[in-house]
Amino acid sequence: MHKNMKILVVDDFSTMRRIIKNLLRDLGYANVDEADDGERALPMLKAGAYEFLITDWNMPGMTGIQLLKNVRADPNLVTLPVLMVTAEQKREQIVEAAEAGVNGYIVKPFTATTLKEKIDKIFERINATKL
């Protein structure tokens, strides 16, 4: 995890994208792009060297869970760390996301501390497996 890593934030509500972007900037990550649903995000992910994906679940077009499944199905993106930030909080949905290969799951509304903790944890685990 380095502060200049390229991050994509996907949410259909622009206010939420701005909140997450601001929180990321506060944590030192300034290299952040946005997309408003999975259909826009997927080509961006395939084209650009993103190192981290933060996505909502409920979006028109392609939902976050579909985006996650598409990411995991792409050999170039299969290891991309994905954090889901969503208002979906049914157990079966969280399990579905875990089984689809999500790296972290945050339910809205969330705090800046939660976001930091989950991001740190995701990269701690990734670094641990690399060693």
């Binding site: 979906e88 949905q93 945050i106 339910v107």
Partner: peptide
Amino acid sequence: ELAGPQIPGLESSSAVKGQDEV
């Protein structure tokens, strides 16, 4: 339809109560 945000008084029985339960 997706479940979406839980509403106080209308919570789904299968919904978690917060980040700790997640």
